[in-house]
């Protein structure tokens, strides 16, 4: 493998892991409610920006990151409690519009609470690139990929090996039956928003040392995460991971071999082509019948 190709693959993998985390957030909420939560990107932004502020206030990185994830989780729970749950009986479209409104509101609040500048987060363990088969990788990339692996494994375990996780899956398969076995659908909804917010925040903190963060980074990251979720098959956990990695690699290869100006166009073009051929996404099971 040429060092150049390896370099593109490594950077694609890094950004793809972030897309995967955001995509998982979309899929978890979609499974619980059939809602596409357009405030998912704002969770990413709040995670990164809160960490920046807490570090500026003198907290150590690890503590700042944990508090930022907790704070973002609270925002996610509040979004569910104050907005989504209030209109439970409304149509899915109404709920989606509410999440769009929430995303605009959260961005506005962020520009007031913080500012409209770019902010950097220090890398978790230094900036010295590591040489790898002729290519180089920054230590932060290893953090991104490593933490994503751990999170994906933990989520897999939760949804496939614990009764509470299976109850959440069951709710997505058959809401009526879930209610009739005594699963609180309201609780499932709440947990989904909390979990998705935490995943978004984590993504935002992991990537901030590489790409900077700002009040509006959620727009693009949210869009890419959504694209990844759709590419993999909305509602599928493995699909979200594969979709995220595929989108990240496509982007990196297009930027490397064609032009970084066209990377988004090419990545989205290929995504659309896949969807035309496979409307359910790569691993989709039922997005067609559900939408």
């Amino acid at each position: 493998m040429s060092p150049q190709l390896l370099q593109y693959l490594l950077s694609g993998l890094t950004v793809g892991a972030i897309y995967a985390l955001v995509a998982l957030g979309f899929s978890i909420i979609y499974n619980a409610s059939n809602v596409i939560n357009f405030a998912q990107g704002e969770f990413v932004m709040i995670g990164g920006m809160t960490t920046v502020s807490l570090i500026a206030a003198g907290l150590p990185l690890a503590l700042a990151a944990l508090l930022a994830i907790a704070a973002t989780t609270l925002v996610g729970l509040a979004l569910e409690k104050l907005a989504v749950e209030r209109v439970r009986s409304e149509s899915v479209v109404t709920l989606i519009i509410i999440t769009i409104g929430a995303s605009i509101l959260l961005r506005g609040l962020a520009s007031l609470v913080w500012d409209k500048n770019l902010h950097a987060l220090p890398a978790f363990s230094g900036e010295r690139p590591i040489a790898l088969g002729g290519a180089t990788i920054v230590p932060q990339s290893l953090w991104v990929v490593g933490v994503t692996l751990v999170v994906v494994a933990a989520l897999w375990w939760f949804f496939n090996r614990t009764l509470h996780g299976k109850a959440m899956l069951a709710t997505s398969h058959n809401r009526l039956a879930a209610q009739l076995v005594g699963i609180s659908v309201r609780r499932v909804l709440l947990v989904s928003f909390g979990l998705s917010a935490a995943l978004g925040a984590l993504a935002g903190i992991l990537i901030a040392p590489i790409t900077f963060t700002a009040w509006d980074v959620g727009v693009m990251l949210g869009l890419k995460g959504f694209a990844a979720a759709v590419l993999g098959g909305l509602g599928s956990g493995p699909g979200a991971v594969i979709g995220g990695l595929a989108l990240g690699l496509l982007e990196a290869l297009s930027a490397g071999y064609v032009s970084s100006a066209y990377k988004d166009v090419i990545a989205f073009g290929i995504m659309l082509a896949v969807l035309v051929l496979m409307p359910g996404g790569l691993l989709g099971r039922r997005s067609v019948e559900r939408v």
Binding site: K166, A170, L176, A177, G182
Partner: peptide, 26 residues
């Protein structure tokens, strides 16, 4: 008070045993 719904409504993709374990969720 437990209802068996019209049309069975099993959790199709989940295993038989998982369906039963979820029955005992409470």
């Amino acid at each position: 008070i437990v209802q068996v719904p019209e049309g069975r409504q099993v959790f199709g993709p989940l295993s038989v045993e998982d369906n039963l374990r979820l029955g005992g969720y409470t």
